[in-house]
């Protein structure tokens, strides 16, 4: 598993109507590298799935509404138990998903 069957866009964009990015790109890149090593997957595969967990829409130009309310939607900004950044939150969920 790990998205190897599909070629996905790996760009992580801040979503319209979604939570603001709070971590730096470098922090996110480093966290993805570490997760990839931990999971035994390629960083590209992990990044693809982080992007997909944040937003599964097929819109070509950005999105008009965030499709993952608790991970990348504005709700994340209220979640005191979260990482606070939608990319890191999606990464946490992907790591947990791979364990269960």
């Amino acid at each position: 598993m790990g998205g190897s069957e599909m070629a996905l866009d790996r760009e992580l964009r801040e979503l319209a109507r979604g939570a603001e990015f709070t971590a730096t790109d470098e922090e996110v890149d480093r966290a993805i590298e570490e997760a990839a090593e931990e999971l035994g997957e390629s960083p590209e595969s992990v990044r693809e799935n982080v992007a997909y967990i944040m937003d599964s829409t097929f819109e070509e130009e950005g999105v008009s509404t965030s499709f993952n309310e608790m991970v990348s939607g504005t709700s994340l900004e209220d979640d005191v138990s979260s990482t606070g950044d939608p990319r890191l939150e999606a990464l946490e969920m992907y790591k947990l998903r791979q364990r269960i």
């Binding site: 967990i53 937003d55 599964s56 993952n68 309310e69 608790m70 947990l96 998903r97």
Partner: peptide
């Protein structure tokens, strides 16, 4: 909280 984040991820595909 974790379970509902999984639910939320699933619902994202359903809404799409």
């Amino acid at each position: 909280n974790y379970a509902f984040k999984f639910v939320s991820t699933d619902e994202g595909r359903h809404i799409t």
